[in-house]
Amino acid sequence: MSEIIAAILIGIGVLFNLFGCIGLVRFPDVYTRLQAATKCVTLGTCLTLGGAAVYGFAGGFGALGMKSLLCIGFLVITAPTAAHALARGAYKYGVKLKEPTVVDLYQQVEPQPTSIEDEETETA
């Protein structure tokens, strides 16, 4: 029974990770990529660790379960902070908001530096 719950949690988590990475590739600019990736990948990883915790507590590996729960706590605190720092760093670095953007009120208080040319590399 515990294996079924763990399998469901891990399956959903892994799929969320995959969708987050598809968003990372498909979205047009840094900020939207950051949104898709941070949200989906954080929740996906938390669910995977939750599956590990269920498996650990039910299967007699107390240490595995407890460490998974602690790791969830660390992730929920650190992931949004890192995303926040990256968004501000990207804005001050000079990355423009791309085409479908409708409004930018942050421009009033923090004028962006001159545009940085896209350093498009043709290696893949």
Binding site: F19, I22, R26, A36, L97, P100, T101, V103
Partner: peptide
């Protein structure tokens, strides 16, 4: 992410 047209309207 999965929508083919990506109906996003981003802004700050």
């Amino acid at each position: 992410v999965l929508h083919p047209d990506m109906p996003i309207k981003p802004g700050i």
